[in-house]
Design a protein around this nucleic acid. Structure first.
Lengths: 209, 209, 209, 209
DNA sequence: CATGAATGAGTGTTCATTCAT
DNA sequence: GATGAATGAACACTCATTCAT
């Protein structure tokens, strides 16, 4: 069993100088993560990359996990910023429009920083605080579930939990893999096709032919 | 000069012993992986768990990566063993039957050793030799692609590459997440429902309503 | 040019504030010493405990050693304050009375702050400035030596140096250990017994039966 | 509060090579302790002094405390080796002879390695396993207590616990301080004088003039 | 071949101390 | 003066890997 390590930031940087330092460290963490992967990322490397002494790093973060956790939180926040507005707008829309919009938005959210997203998802062990990579999934699931509840009469599926799970997971994965591993094949007109197809599949599923 | 006696049995005995050692080490690796996660797994721990000296371990494997890679290969092989026959049978079947069969088989394959599968997918960094976790995906994709080629006339989709990607990725993810994270919710009759729904979605997609 | 006004009060106010700061730091040092021991006591902890910035701390003390040395000096001073008067009174007294008084006084001095005394004696390395823990012993030795010189005719011992050493060290140790490690066993009537016995032993020694 | 650290040796060195390594490390620890004191002794320094890699050190000892604890144990054992025989012989002897013998033996035990003894007593914080520096005291106390019990009729003291405490602590301290801090003043004929005086004091005390 | 003692580069982490604000 | 962010030397400790036995 992996031992529990502190992952909460140690002190919140209120002063200007501090904030810059913290930012530098988070950017450095992301950069190192991309360059060397999670395993080879060390606090010393990160500090050096940030142009900051190792002592300073430990004044703000208790270790590697905490840094990565902060990067994850920040990244998730950025993805959510892209999606949040659209998600609210979607609620009243009929299925076709709603699904289309959602698919678009989820793909867009994955475009924020695909390489970082990839490293985060592929390399960071889902343990302790690092579980937060999955927070997005849970939020999205709840949202889809809520939508289905509202539009219960328009859908042919009985088990809303199951349907929400299937829809959320499917769209999320397809968006992720498409953006992260096949970014070339969903650029230009192929992009439209991809969106069309995914939308069609989900809509077809929900409406029952 | 010693007379030429049959020595093959002896050699074979040695080989047999080696094989046992190797197996012990692979099992130990899997066990440690489950117990401590990838990061905290060390060659010394593995050797001890296997009841083998660290020196012996290095006689068979050049390091941790190699051990984990071997475990991955073995695990993938086991999953494939479950699926292989079914996959051959599926080729001539019409869409409905084929998809249903495939979904069943992929779920079954994920049931082989879900906890190990989970650790392998979630904790092992996809780098170098460790990329092999994705080998299954690639194989499955090729298979789906081949099926669609054969049944081109029965499907409504134009871009077979895209369709194969969507189908494979969707089924794989749903099977994985269902087995690994929601094993309770796909047991008993809910299992049938899950299979039905996924099948319906894919079939609907492929046939175009 | 500004006219010459009385500024002493102001300066004195400043000095007063400084003195409070210094006191706060010394008290904090003692508190941390008790709480965490010498090794785990750090200047940062002490500054925080004192409610003072680390920068300020270094304005008054060059480091941990200096702080602890100051605490030692202060503590020794307090112990001496308890003993000093009695020690002067003792000089003209005959052996029985003198020894009895001295034993009482030394025990009393150890009661000033036994826990701090214990930490100081047990945990602070006797090196450099920190040697001062032994200052008390030296002072006490000189005193005993002087007493014996004066009362040379009443004592049966020849080697006054040796006798002074034996008496001082014995009483000091017994008082220390009794107060610090067996405080319970020298409370109430047992206290009287302890004082009696020690006195009897020393007196018997000095008078030679 | 000082945190608890492991102090038990990690594996007992049975093989010859190992035993040499362990010995080298213990000797190095003692040497470093003498040279730099407890605080400045670091595992790295010790390893280097022992001509051993830091990794080897940690294969046998979990840290500095454990090393020092082992040195203490060893040193105590050596002191006990000097004393043990004499201690047994002493039991049946009458007071004068017994006390004289004991004082001699305790002084002799302190002569085993006075400088190491000094560092151990003065510098090593009495915490956790390191408390063992006091083990000797406890053993000695029990012994004296037992002797007094047996010779109850010959002694004038009532409270045997108290008497045992006073005798043990007094002799121990005088022996320690004499050997460690005044080794010059108890060499040659002054040595005899010292033994005589201490013996006389204790005997006088026990017999009540 | 097996063994496990030995290695040491590398990582995590602390803390006395400085110095710009 | 006071502050506390920043520093970095030093220390604790692990673990992949080698090699004499």
């Amino acid at each position: 069993m992996p031992r529990k390590t502190r992952t909460d930031p140690r002190k919140s940087a209120v002063q200007q100088r501090s904030q810059m330092t913290v930012d530098a460290m988070l950017e450095a963490t992301a950069r190192i993560l991309l360059k060397s992967g999670y395993d080879n990322a060390s606090t010393n490397k990160i500090a050096q990359e940030a142009g900051v002494s190792i002592g300073s790093l430990y004044q703000y973060f208790p270790g590697k996990e905490a840094l990565v956790a902060a990067v994850i939180d920040q990244h998730m926040e950025e993805m959510m910023d892209v999606a949040r507005v659209a998600l609210a707008e979607v609620m009243p829309l009929p299925i076709e429009a709603a699904v289309r919009k959602l698919v678009e938005v989820i793909v867009a959210a994955h475009r924020v920083n695909p390489t970082l997203h990839r490293v985060l998802v592929e390399q960071v062990p889902r343990t302790g605080r690092l579980r937060n990579v999955e927070a997005l999934d849970r939020e999205a699931y709840e949202l889809v579930r809520a939508y289905l509840e509202i539009h219960r009469d328009e859908v042919a599926v009985k088990d809303l939990d199951l349907a929400a799970f299937i829809c959320q997971k499917t769209v999320e994965t397809l968006a992720h893999t498409a953006v992260v591993n096949h970014s070339d094949s969903i650029s230009g007109k192929r992009r439209e096709l991809f969106l069309d197809e995914v939308t069609r599949m989900i809509v077809g599923y929900l409406k029952g032919q």
